[in-house]
Design a protein around this nucleic acid. Structure first.
Lengths: 195, 195, 195, 195
DNA sequence: TATGAATGAGCATTCATTCAT
DNA sequence: GATGAATGAATGCTCATTCAT
């Protein structure tokens, strides 16, 4: 067997699950379908995952970890806020565009599968917001941003835009210039649109 | 029997369904529970709704119609864009806050219940975006907004913010000053945050 | 209201029930359909019939009574057996052809609706057989028929032919010359087919 | 475990279904009862049969196939018609008597379960009639039978007698000498009953 | 007498999960 | 580890029947 072909059963199952969950949703995907798509037996899934819910959670967690790895935090000391904001937005959009299926899975249903999962999702969202808030606050401290803005609201605004545009990309299955989009968004927030 | 107490069975079922769907999600709510909560028999639901899916659709459609009625379009001729933007955002946020459960139902799961429903939701979203874009374009024509902005992206930005903050309100079950929030959001977009 | 138009509700229900039972079978016909077809309310049926089963029984009983009335017994003294046999067969076939729907209802499902009904049907069948047996026996006594025949089996043979051809008529919805058919059948039994 | 005892789950389900359908009829038999009687879980039935209807169809088809195998066609060249007729009738009666339950299932309800099934039953009946007609025609050609008989009607008469007597056997649950009965029937048809 | 809104027992079917091989 | 036959709890939906009007 060649290197590339050698995928662990576990990997295969996760891949299959992402594909099917993304396409048909959690509740419309049967464990048997996942097993088939993964070229495994139905029982094999349970060798690696305790339940359907856990398989789903595992996928979300993995996805989230990959985001953390792929989008490195800026060293806040040097980079100007505009640049930081741009990188944050661009990093996320690119990641989501490159992981369409996983993104689709993550954006839907998280709330309805499991109470625990929902709380976890809220926590993740909260952390992102904290990260952005820190960025904004630094900007204010360094005099790059106005002092009269509502930090809380502005941070959330930034956080609102990323999933919305990401959702647009993956749901309508379009391919866009994420760099350009990120520039437009960050500039607009910074500069406003008033004449 | 008093006037107010006299609720049609159909109303009662819808109310019960909204409450349960909102609390436990579509898939975790059994028809029997809805019937019980509505003080009706299981079969009675099927007197009014052909299926669980249709009951869900009916709820979403009703909610959407109410939004259309509650948030009147501005007469674009007179009102300045800042004011229009504020009214749009405020109207939605207030509606969502006042219809928490319905909102919660509408924001989750729409995508996973039914293909048809999903397409309908995308259409509704598209219409909202069109409405906002028209508003922005008018602002540019009237010289209230800069001419170098990307109308498409800016409109979407506005559309992104409303559900995000609405979602925050209903998911965390907090009570906020929607007027203040709307002012902050619209001002920020208009003015930017750059010093 | 004209005479002919004035049909009692009860009649209307029975007519509707015969039509639907005949077309779709007992189990596939809903009480509501019958009510609609009869131009009555669902509850009205229960004014006249205690249950679906009883409505069905009533129909069968009525049909059976009509057969008894329509096909008068022969005065055994005079008529030759060939003639008697012919009249019996012809009478039944004509009746069944003229009451296609009722016949269709009677021939199917009687067995599966109700234990009681099934036993009743067996009794009716037994009576017919007895009647035919008496006819055959008279024929033997009068020297019209051979003495070495098995009266029991021959009677049953006659009884077998009537419903089979009747069933053919109503199931395939064809119109046939019942007189000719009856002649053929009775002659064949009498004469045999051997060269 | 002994050989004989080792019955596949599928066999067990079919056996159980035949027994129950035969006893209580299709509509009065619940899938759960079949499962219990087969010593299987409710879901197991669906491993082998897509639906209740299909389980029923499968049973009928199997029964029909077994008849075809058990009652070999005569080589028309040699055997005299009387013998052929006798063998045909006897073969069927014996088969039906030996498969009482299956016969009971086959004779009732076929018409009311399913449109498709009903058409199939009509087709099967038609084929039998064709087979008998060929037999009669051969008899005429060979000079064994009279030339003035109505082939069509005579064939149908033969076909009418088999299920009638079979039905008598299985419905009243009696044990008879099928050989004797077949002799009587075929002789009667051949010879007639006239003195 | 006539009605039809309301009911709930009853049932076919699904699918996550188990476990013997 | 890997498998898939077997399972049965869970649930959407039907429809005969009731009863207040």
């Amino acid at each position: 067997m060649e290197r590339q072909r050698k995928i662990s059963k576990r990997e295969a199952i996760i891949e299959a699950a992402i594909g099917l969950f993304s396409q048909k949703g959690y509740h419309n995907t049967r464990m048997e379908e996942i097993a088939q798509a993964a070229g495994a037996g139905k029982g094999t899934i349970y060798e690696y995952f305790a339940s359907k819910t856990e398989l789903f959670s595992e996928i979300l967690l993995t996805g989230w970890r990959k985001i953390q790895e792929d989008i490195p935090l800026q060293e806040p000391g040097v980079t100007p806020v505009l640049e930081q904001l741009h990188r944050l937005i661009h990093g996320h959009l690119r990641y989501f565009q490159e992981n369409r299926q996983l993104t689709r899975v993550s954006f839907c249903e998280v709330d309805t599968i499991d109470q625990e999962l929902m709380e976890w999702a809220l926590k993740v969202k909260g952390e992102k917001e904290k990260q952005v808030r820190a960025m904004i606050e630094t900007g204010i401290e360094r005099g790059e941003l106005r002092t009269d803005i509502d930090v809380d609201i502005v941070s959330r605004m930034v956080c609102a835009l990323i999933p919305y545009f990401a959702s647009h990309i993956v749901m309508n299955d379009v391919e866009i210039d994420t760099h350009h989009l990120a520039v437009q968004i960050s500039t607009t927030i910074l500069e406003g649109i008033k004449n």
